Each structure stands twice: as structure tokens, then as C-alpha cells.
Amino acid sequence: SLNIVTVTLNMERHHFLGISIVGQSNDRGDGGIYIGSIMKGGAVAADGRIEPGDMLLQVNDVNFENMSNDDAVRVLREIVSQTGPISLTVAKC
């Protein structure tokens, strides 16, 4: 069973999320979106629970499971540009 973790980040303390995301597209185009790298000083690094290779399932109320990489990057950028905490739900691989 997948270990699902939801992390809520206070964006007032850390001014950027600090992750890159990578799409693992397979033949069907539904390989999922994964955490690529984590930048020091960002909210994700400070929290420490999300790691490279984790699968990104949801951000706030947006489901990322069947999203293309381009869409995921765009949607994540829109969410980060808003104010307030950000909740990331990942599956630990």
C-alpha cells in the first residue's frame, strides 16, 4: 500500500516552495508527476517530509494524478502565486 502524506506549508515564513516537478510519462501518458529536486531555503526543504521521487497527488484542492507535465507546472505556479498556506499530498515511493 502506498504511504500517503499530506504536508501543509506556511508560505509566509518561506517565500518559495522550492521544488521542481517531473512528469514520468509512459506509453499511455499517465505516468504521474513526481518531485524532482528540492531547493534549500524553500518551504518544502524546511518541512523535510517530502523527498525527491515522491509522487505528487494533490496540491490544495487540485488533483495532479492524470495531469501532463506542462499542465502540472502551470497549475503549481498559479497556486504558488496566491497567498495562504499550501497543502501538498504525495505518495512515498
Rank of each mutant, 00 (worst) to 15 (best):
G84D: 15
L76Y: 14
E78D: 15
M55F: 10
L88T: 00
V59P: 01
S1G: 03
V7W: 01
I4P: 07
I35T: 13
L88E: 15
A91M: 03
V90Y: 01
G48S: 08
R74C: 07
G18D: 02
D71K: 14
T6N: 12
T83P: 09
G18R: 00
E65V: 04
G36V: 04
N63I: 10
G31M: 13
S87C: 10
L88A: 02
E78L: 08
L9D: 02
D61C: 06
A91D: 02
V75Q: 10
E12Q: 05
R77T: 04
V75R: 08
N63L: 09
S1H: 03
G29M: 13
V5Q: 04
N3C: 02
M67H: 10
V90K: 02
N3H: 02
S68Q: 09
L56S: 01
G32R: 09
D54G: 01
Q58N: 14
R77C: 03
L9M: 10
C93A: 15
V90Q: 00
R13N: 14
K92H: 14
V22A: 14
R13C: 07
I79R: 08
S37P: 03
T8C: 08
N69W: 04
V5E: 08
Q58D: 11
E12S: 10
V7L: 05
G23W: 04
F64Y: 08
T6V: 10
D61H: 11
Q58S: 13
S20F: 01
I4K: 13
L56W: 00
D71N: 12
L2F: 13
V44L: 04
G84H: 06
E12G: 08
D54S: 01
T6I: 09
L76G: 07
N66C: 06
G29K: 15
R74S: 11
S87E: 15
I50N: 01
V5Y: 05
I79H: 04
R13G: 13
G32M: 04
M11A: 06
V62Y: 09
V73W: 11
G18I: 01
V73Q: 15
S87G: 06
A72C: 03
D71R: 14
T89N: 04
D71F: 05
N69V: 07
T6A: 04
R77A: 08
R74W: 03
V73H: 14
N60Q: 14
G29Y: 11
S25T: 15
F64G: 02
N69S: 09
C93Q: 14
E12T: 09
N60E: 05
V62H: 11
D70C: 08
V80F: 05
I38T: 02
V22H: 12
L2M: 11
V73N: 15
N63Q: 14
C93N: 11
Q82N: 13
L9H: 03
G29Q: 11
K92T: 03
T83V: 10
N60S: 08
V75L: 10
Q58W: 14
V62I: 09
N3E: 03
R13A: 09
M11R: 09
Q58T: 14
F64N: 00
L9P: 08
V7Y: 12
G23F: 02
N3V: 03
N69K: 13
S87P: 01
N63V: 07
N63T: 08
E78H: 04
N69G: 12
E65I: 04
R74K: 09
R77F: 03
H14Q: 13
S25F: 14
V62R: 07
R13W: 04
R74L: 12
V80K: 12
G18K: 01
N66T: 10
G41V: 09
D30Q: 11
M55W: 06
T89H: 12
Q58H: 13
S81G: 15
T83R: 07
V80G: 15
S25P: 04
V62G: 02
E65T: 12
V80T: 09
G84F: 03
S81R: 09
T6M: 12
I4C: 03
K92R: 04
T89Y: 03
I35V: 14
S1M: 08
V80N: 14
G31L: 05
V22S: 14
M39T: 04
G18N: 01
V59G: 03
Q58E: 13
L56I: 04
G31Y: 14
V22T: 12
L2W: 09
A91V: 13
V22W: 13
L57P: 00
L9F: 10
L56F: 02
D70Y: 07
V75E: 09
T83A: 10
I4M: 11
V7T: 10
N60Y: 01
L57N: 01
F64L: 04
L17E: 03
T8D: 06
S1Q: 05
D61K: 10
G53V: 04
V73D: 15
M55A: 12
I86C: 15
V22K: 15
S81Y: 10
V75P: 02
I79F: 07
D54A: 02
M39R: 15
F64H: 01
T6P: 05
R77L: 02
N63A: 09
G23A: 06
N60H: 02
L9R: 00
L2C: 11
G31A: 08
G18E: 01
R77H: 09
M11E: 03
V22R: 13
K92S: 03
S81Q: 13
V62N: 07
D71A: 07
G29N: 14
S68R: 06
T83W: 02
T89F: 14
S87Y: 06
E65Q: 05
I79M: 09
